[in-house]
């Protein structure tokens, strides 16, 4: 686990109350959920598309549904979970606005982690080199990226404003530390705790 991910996980961990219920959309191999189960005694459920990642989740004892979020977040009643987590997955979903709308209904609160496309190094790569940026939080080349949508921290804040979602908490992370000044320029990642 890299230092950056460690910082990001610890932020999410701090926000989540003990013994709460969590739905992690695009939970990958279940690393975050498994930490939450161990340290916060949460009731965890993941949703993941990749079959190999499902095996890893089961290995960790994490309950997971093998589903494609592009088909929507179906089946859950409103307020089924205390938190719905979209950590580094929102930008990979075909219709992020629909998933976010569902997530905010299914969860009392939603935690969203996004890579910042407006990071200064990304801006520099576009401006000076004229290439699609590759950064720590956007590590892929144009031809192999799973990301379908590119957004900045400002984009997400504006989006929440327009939709009437309340940003209860937000933290911005750079290469190794938390960014407090000009996050849209200096942060690689933004993590938000939002509610309706």
């Amino acid at each position: 686990m890299s230092d950056k991910i460690k910082i990001e996980y610890s932020i999410v961990m701090n926000w989540i109350k003990d013994e709460s219920s969590i739905l992690d959309l695009g939970c990958g191999d279940g690393e975050l959920l498994s930490l939450l189960v161990q340290q916060k005694k949460v009731r965890a459920q993941g949703i993941e598309l990749d079959e190999q990642a499902i095996y890893k989740c089961v290995e960790r004892g994490i309950s997971v549904f093998h589903e494609d979020l592009d088909n929507g977040l179906k089946g859950y009643a409103d307020k089924s979970f205390d938190y719905v987590v979209l950590y580094q997955s929102l930008q990979q979903i075909k219709k992020p606005d629909i998933i976010l709308r569902d997530a905010i209904n299914v969860g009392r609160k939603v935690i969203v982690g996004i890579p910042n496309f407006a990071y200064y190094k990304a801006r520099a790569q576009i401006f000076f080199k004229g290439i699609v940026p590759v950064t720590t939080s956007l590590p892929y080349e144009w031809y192999n990226t799973p990301n379908l949508h590119f957004l900045s921290i400002s984009d997400f804040i504006n989006y929440c404003k327009n939709k009437g979602f309340k940003i209860e908490k937000s933290i911005f992370i750079g290469e190794k530390s938390i960014i407090k000044i000009f996050p849209n320029l200096f942060a690689l990642t933004g993590i938000f705790l939002i509610s309706k």
Partner: peptide, 21 residues
């Protein structure tokens, strides 16, 4: 099987679902 999964979601049954390729 996904119908069973859906019922688990609504009834709050702890479940894992895997669709093996």
């Amino acid at each position: 099987s996904r119908e069973i999964v859906k019922a688990c979601k609504l009834a709050g049954v702890d479940a894992t679902y895997c669709e093996i390729d």
